[in-house]
Design a protein around this nucleic acid. Structure first.
Lengths: 157, 157
DNA sequence: CGCATATGTTTCGATATGAAAGTAATTACT
DNA sequence: AGTAATTACTTTCATATCGAAACATATGCG
């Protein structure tokens, strides 16, 4: 029973959808957190490594925009990855305010090894939906997200 | 451009839906975090107060099951709410391991005042979708979540 | 050049989160 | 009854997360 709130029908419907959305996301996050946790990574760390693998070296600001995380957060996460020798920070020569982050060979090996299982896992989770339903879900979420994306720096095609 | 990964079509489709789902959720969470933040609450704190308002006093374990949060988390969140005089802990007489949590009058006033705006906000966000689409989204998310819910203690009617 | 402003990162403080270990109370088993 | 197993919560520890403020570097403009 998603909600006990007596509001307008619009509110009740939206709250119902909202709660289901959040629950699904929580469940999926928990599942993936568990999976990447087996490799000693958090989801945030995994996200950084994956971005670097698929998009190439990036400064902290760009990573934050890509992952929708604050700069201070990225400092922490990248710091922890750096401590473990999975990424390196390199001050940019042409603008010394900027710090570029790149995978080390060790980091590249790790994320290259882990990502396929991650993709399979997500495919497995979403196999509860037909391919049409998956696309519908994506479309609905895109519409929802777009109605909110403010300063996201949404360079989506 | 959601993903640059070259996997099977199944994987690519699932990853695409996954990223959109996560982005939408992140955007909504950020928006609601901002809103409840104006009242000096985090989303987690708000969730606890809301559960207590709509479902009545509850022990920490039940709160955790309801909110899908770990016990250690609830200890922290309830502790912070208690410090601010919004909830009270009461060891249960019949089983002294259990600690019941309830709203104080102050906490009840606060959440009663805040919740309507919260509901309106969510309705506003979801108004980007038609009522049919909202129900579709809810259904798709429910299906997704159910395929994962493991130990959730899903007592949904 | 020199200062004001803009930009990128880090630091700091607070809260959140989960795992694992610890404590206390209850229940189960012999 | 007495010990073992279980249950409920708390504590500890590491990481994550954000926002605000501090810092450093760049850039613009007089």
């Amino acid at each position: 029973m998603p909600t006990h709130y007596r509001g307008t029908p619009d509110e009740r419907r939206a709250l119902d959808a909202f709660i289901k959305l959040m629950r699904a996301t929580d469940c999926i996050s928990a599942d993936l957190t568990r999976q990447v946790g087996e490799a000693g990574l958090t989801l945030g760390q995994f996200g950084v490594l994956e971005s670097l693998l698929h998009l190439g070296p990036m400064c902290l600001g760009d990573l934050g925009a890509k992952l929708l995380r604050s700069g201070s957060n990225l400092t922490t996460v990248v710091g922890n990855l750096e401590k473990r020798g999975l990424v390196v920070r390199t001050p940019r020569a042409t603008d010394r305010r900027v710090v570029d982050v790149d995978l080390t060979p060790k980091g590249r090996r790790l994320i290259t090894r882990l990502f396929p299982a991650h993709a399979r896992r997500i495919a497995g989770i979403f196999s509860a939906l037909s391919s049409t339903e998956q696309r519908e879900l994506g479309d609905l979420c895109r519409t929802l997200g777009r109605s909110l994306s403010t300063t996201t720096g949404d360079d989506t095609k």
